[in-house]
Design a protein around this nucleic acid. Structure first.
Length: 775
RNA sequence: GCCGGAGUGGCGGAAUGGUAGACGCGCACGACUCAAAAUCGUGUCUCGCAAGGGGUGUGGGUUCAAGUCCCUCCUCCGGCACCA
């Protein structure tokens, strides 16, 4: 046969697949079960890297296998198209962010097609299209009506470089997750979504999901539930004009109540704030100046006493002093603690530094104590509500309008939602995309857009100029895939029911406590609104690993270790790259696999040998026939469990055996097994052999009776050490096996066995595997 | 500090408690070639000429049999962390 010309052959099949819509998935297919395979949609950065290939081309092996097995598989693709890079490119190069984004999308479509992946392009979803974000806004308004959205002035994370607020999840080690700048704390009014209302369900519902343990653990840690009690301490003061009431603390250790020697309130606590003591005022001011990282990073225990007021321990009526210290956080629990230096390391440090008493006590029963002092059992979470306002342009406009005149009451005072009939609130183009720098989106400069009639009173009002966090966009894209062109609903009930929940979701571990948590919450909230039929969106989730540079380091331009997939594809072909990435390691484990340029050559070598394979009229030997059946079984099982590396290895072993001589039947089966991995080559071979679709585009079956050779090699051990191997009939009895085993060791290992002869204490035969003689 | 996960050749990695190192890369030698590349063949855990011995981070344990199960320690990776 001619040399394998991957360039023309791959191009030919890719064009055919696209023009025929070969992988457009019907919502129902007779006799076929639906299977929804989802992988995180890409950000249109403008260029595909090896990570994209790993994310999309490797799962395509699984998808094509499932199709061959008769499933109606949806494998959709889209673009998470809003976000800062488009805006930054616009500012830097004087471009329109919309054009930048959509040009990138167009270019990346071509690159994605070069994978030969079986995407259903007819379901493409782009979050920056008004036809999509109309429904993002609509969902936001449903959440608003349900009371899940509120506006509040709180201390928020502010990125001084990206000039926007960030959610807690987007701050890593005190730094902006995107750009690495140190995050500052600012008091700003922002739109929040009540994810904390779902904290318990987000933890408790994990137990029924077929998800890796590490993701469940990470989410549970992130939500950080702790159970304890709130206990009131009466305040007493020698300053009569103050009516101080009580000081409530949260504790997980009510049993230590008798060991309390002082109290601590956070600098933000009302009790500290209303003090006119100069020392306290100064301390509060200092604490305010600290960044989050400085405050939680330094373990040094500073603080000042709040003079003139004491707390009374409800357990024993003893009077204890109250201190203000920033090791107590204002936004957790009640912002105040009872300090038990004998039983808490931090309290001990503080007590030692400030000469406060340390009182050893007998621990008592928590339940009884809480009951005795009238405490209230409660839970606290590390999880914070989701701040979704972003002071940036390239995002979904938040569909809210501020009207001074007809201000509604309550926490959202002054704000009214845009009428649903007015959706979408379209994001306009601007002259200049520079942020205002005053904590406002550049949209604020577009006055004719901002000024709008109040939806309630019709008077002059102003639009919200912040846009939504892009994690809102991506919280429901997989629902839109089920019905991407629907103009009347975000998706029809029927179609949602047909496809959801997602059967398998593949993605990166970096989304564990961001997208994956947000979208679980979002889906649960939609479930409560009756919009979807199940409370968990993804039945099974897997985190894939990372592809590193050839030097084992993370690929980066500065290290010069970046592999350009387009170049490798041009040189060796898409099938080679797909198969190499499948071969590099188990797909369903979070490893870091270095790209080995020689490895791709090895896979290409394998494919070249496949290409040269010529079937003949010969018959397979019984041994090779067994191997063929074993391989069919193994490759199928391995793909199903995403152990693609061992599936590839099984194909290589089979090729090594059939290379010299292969029957027509075995040849076809081999090509069928190869097809998910190297679809271009497989289709080309099928066409050249004149096979009809229905004749080969299926998964071959194996003969259960031909999985084992009649004769097997069995190891003979003495005390667990292999001393010989013998040929044995697979159905040999234990007695026969042991007789032959003893003969074998006698023959091969005269010396040692002679000395052991007659001393055999025990003999074990594991059929077809091993004989162990214990002496 | 708390919670997960993982430690196997020169490298990526294989091994339902049953012959450790499959498969691939690399390397060595050989064939082809004037030569090289490509390709093909053979070998490749380790000590030993061999017979044989040793070997899956450490030390113990369970078992006829342990990379695999249990305990100790060490190292690495990930999540959380002044969260009361």
């Amino acid at each position: 046969m001619d040399k394998y010309d991957h360039q023309s052959i791959e191009k030919k099949w890719q064009e055919r697949w696209v023009s025929s819509g070969a992988f457009n998935t019907p919502d129902k297919k007779d006799g076929a079960e639906n299977f929804y395979f989802l992988t995180e949609f890409p950000y249109p950065s403008g260029n595909l890297h090896v990570g994209h290939w790993y994310a999309f081309s490797v799962p395509d092996i699984f998808v094509r296998y499932m199709r061959a097995r008769g499933y109606n598989v949806m494998y959709p693709i889209g673009f998470d198209a809003f976000g800062l890079p488009a805006e930054n490119a616009a500012i830097k190069n004087k471009l329109n962010p919309r054009e930048w984004t959509f040009n990138n999308i167009e270019y990346m479509r071509g690159q994605l097609r070069s994978m030969g992946a079986s995407f259903d392009w007819s379901r493409e979803v782009i979050t920056a299209n008004p036809s999509y974000y109309k429904w993002t806004q609509w969902l936001f308004l449903q959440f608003y009506k349900k009371g899940l959205v509120y506006r509040k002035e709180t201390a928020v994370n502010w990125c001084p470089k990206d000039l926007t607020v960030l959610a807690n999840e987007q701050v890593v080690d005190g730094k902006c997750e995107r750009c690495g700048s140190l995050v500052e704390q600012r008091m700003m009014p922002q739109w929040n979504i009540k994810i904390t209302d779902y904290a318990d369900r987000l933890i408790d519902d994990l137990k029924d999901l077929d998800w890796p343990k590490q993701i469940k653990e990470a989410q549970t840690n992130w939500i950080g539930r702790s159970e304890g009690a709130e206990i009131d301490f009466k305040l007493t003061t020698d300053v009569p004009r103050l009516n101080l009431g009580t000081l409530t603390v949260f504790t997980t250790r009510p049993d230590t109540l008798f060991g309390v020697t002082y109290m601590v309130v956070a600098p933000e606590h009302a009790l500290a704030q209303q003090s006119d003591d100069a020392d306290v005022k100064e301390y509060i001011e200092q604490a305010k100046q600290k960044t989050e990282l400085e405050r939680t990073g330094s373990k040094e225990k500073t603080g000042v006493e709040l003079k003139g007021v004491k707390a009374i321990n409800p357990a024993n009526n003893s009077e204890v002093p109250i201190w203000v210290a920033d090791y107590v956080l204002g936004n957790y629990g009640t912002g105040a603690i009872m300090a038990v230096p004998a039983h808490d390391e931090r309290d001990r440090e503080f007590a030692e530094k400030h000469n406060l008493p340390i009182k050893q006590i007998e621990l008592e029963d928590s339940k009884k104590i809480v009951e005795q002092v009238g405490g209230k059992w409660t839970k606290n979470y590390h999880l914070r509500d989701w701040v979704v306002s972003r002071q940036r342009f390239w995002g979904v406009p938040i569909p809210m309008i501020h009207c001074e005149k007809c201000a509604t009451e309550g926490e959202n005072k002054g704000w009214n939602p845009v009428k649903e009939t007015e959706l979408p609130v379209v994001l306009p183009d601007l002259e200049d995309y520079l942020p205002t720098g005053e904590g406002k989106s550049p949209l604020a400069k577009k006055h004719d857009w901002v000024e709008v009639a109040c939806p309630k009173c019709g008077g002059q009002a102003e639009r919200e100029t912040d846009t939504l966090d892009t994690f809102v966009d991506s919280s429901w894209y997989f629902e839109r895939y089920t019905d991407p062109k629907n103009d009347n609903e975000f998706a029809s009930k029927d179609k949602l029911k047909t496809w959801l929940p997602v059967n398998l979701y593949s993605g990166g571990s970096e989304h564990t406590t961001m997208h994956l948590l947000y979208s679980r919450f979002w889906h649960k909230a939609m479930f409560d609104l009756g919009l979807v039929g199940e409370s968990e969106p993804y039945l099974k989730r897997m985190n894939r690993g990372l592809i590193m540079g050839p030097d084992g380091q993370k690929m980066s331009k500065s290290k010069g270790n970046v592999i350009d997939p387009d170049a490798v594809v041009a040189e060796l072909g898409a099938d080679t790259v797909r198969m190499y990435l499948a071969f590099i390691g188990p797909y369903n484990e979070v490893g870091a696999y270095p790209w080995n340029p020689n490895g791709t050559v090895g896979v290409r070598r394998f494919l070249d040998r496949v290409w040269k394979l010529e079937p003949s009229n010969s018959k397979l030997s019984p041994q090779v026939e067994i191997l063929l059946n074993q391989t069919i079984k193994k490759v199928g099982e391995d793909i199903a469990s995403l152990k693609l590396n061992t599936a590839v290895s099984a194909l290589m072993i089979l090729l090594n055996e059939i290379e010299k001589d292969v029957s027509h039947d075995a040849y076809k089966k081999f090509v069928q097994l190869l097809a998910p991995f190297a679809p271009h080559m497989a289709h080309e071979l099928a066409e050249r052999h004149g096979w009809k679709r229905e004749e080969w585009e299926t998964w071959p079956s194996f003969d259960e009776s031909k999985l084992q050779n009649e004769m097997v090699m069995v190891a003979v051990q003495i005390n667990g050490k292999v001393r010989a191997t013998i040929q044995l009939k697979i159905d040999a009895s234990e007695e026969e096996a042991l007789v032959l085993g003893r003969q074998a060791v006698a023959k091969w290992l005269k010396g040692p066995f002679d000395s052991a002869q007659g001393k055999e204490k025990k003999a074990v035969y594991v059929p077809g595997r091993v004989i162990n003689l214990v002496v």
